[in-house]
Design a protein around this nucleic acid. Structure first.
Lengths: 243, 243
DNA sequence: GAGTGGTCTAGACCACCGA
DNA sequence: CGGTGGTCTAGACCACTCC
């Protein structure tokens, strides 16, 4: 573990413990550097990490103000349904409802950045938390990951874990969130009335090499799941604090 | 403008122009430092800013991979309804539907971190884009900002701008997003059928000094508005889990 | 082994804030 | 004015990836 992360964690703990109160100001960077016996740049790396997490903000000329204790993983850290569920102490489940190959439709081709008519894999999964169905996931996979997906157990609780093992990681995911009325298929599978409200998340993931991995349409039952996130407004230094 | 920001902007432009292609690797940091004639730390500040924006990711031992051109403001930069609307070329509007004082209810007191029964101000506003009503906003303001809010024009398109002028800025905002069915009041004001789906965003904002400013329940008509955001997964320096 | 990013040091100067 | 964070330099060593 790097030094600046340990310092960030320590400061975070001291805030959570109440030793450093919300609304109070942290000691000056120079003092922190001295008390942790590191260079000021290392302190700034730690502070930047906390600022990015929304724990503190800085004011030039004044100091670092404590805003909140460290949140548990919000949407920004969202990696997969299963990991998110586990981080909240729930047991994720999943089963494949349908699976089929076919040529990419226009929207799929655009979002996956593929040629029109390229062969893609479509999978519909029902996802559950603690045994209760909460989300219907319709995913379209790019050709280069089809094999890895088809090798997965139909009931695997975590598709992402399985793909990790195949060396496929999402480095970046774009989310678009809105609300939709349940279609008749949605209502049948999720067990709600037609037209009842669902929270929809459209996802597009890219791997570390920039290639698109998948495009998904996730529909959540309301009341079971809510997304949390936070934005820290201006004044957070855009930079890491490398000195 | 600082040097690293100019470099970040320049790299961003070169990516948007296609000079640096998606999926390609940036020149090594040492080379960039030499070509921009700055220290490596300055280059890293620029790269970190781009990484935070989801434009690039790094792989130790390999290099910086280009993932996407710079997005225009997503949810992470979301500051206010009006600013968000304007950034998309739309004209924001707003009118006060109801306004009343009263003692804080339990949920309000908790979220605003106030004493129970503290006097708060509640305002219901209808927000519009290009003249069309799209969102119903129910806000509860903390006592210390009530005066500033009451001084605002009932039809001001941007509440945030008005509060800025009063010296009240949100340094951090927490968002919780889900889908709900329209209540009868919602349906009457928004002109939709009862129980039709609405996208709900619960917001809590804090000022630079850590005090809570407001707590809001925003309900959007679906189809008019969607939230976009992106998460950059692991390996972005300084993002990593600390707890 | 060579090349990459990740971390850290020890300085320096500047812009901004409040007394 | 003195103290704060914001930026920048010029080094150094390490961990990782790929050949």
């Amino acid at each position: 573990m790097s030094v600046y992360r340990e310092i960030a964690r320590d400061l975070s703990r001291r805030i959570a413990d109440g030793e450093l109160a919300i609304g109070a100001t942290l000691p000056p960077e120079a003092d922190l550097a001295q008390s942790y016996d590191v260079a000021r740049g290392t302190i700034r790396s730690a502070l930047s990490a906390l600022a990015r997490a929304g724990v503190i903000v800085s004011r030039r000329g004044t100091g670092w103000v404590i805003l909140s204790p460290l949140q548990d993983h919000g949407f920004g850290q969202l990696r997969s349904f299963a990991q998110w569920a586990r981080s909240r102490g729930m047991v994720p489940g999943g089963r494949v409802v349908a699976r089929a190959h076919g040529p990419a439709r226009r929207e799929e081709a655009e979002r996956l950045r593929l040629e029109r008519d390229a062969e893609v894999l479509r999978v519909v999964r029902m996802r559950s938390l603690d045994g209760t169905d909460v989300m219907l996931e319709r995913t379209t996979y790019a050709p280069w990951v089809m094999d890895a997906v088809e090798g997965l157990d139909a009931e695997t609780p975590s598709v992402t874990d399985g793909m990790d093992q195949a060396g496929i990681f999402a480095a970046r995911t774009e989310h678009t969130i809105d609300a939709v009325a349940a279609t008749s298929e949605d209502s049948r599978l999720l067990g709600v009335r037609r037209s009842s409200p669902l929270l929809r998340v459209l996802r597009v993931s890219q791997g570390r090499d920039g290639r698109t991995i998948e495009f998904a349409d996730d529909r959540y039952l309301p009341g079971t799941v809510a997304f949390q996130m936070q934005s820290t407004m201006p004044s957070t230094p855009l930079t890491r604090a490398m000195a």
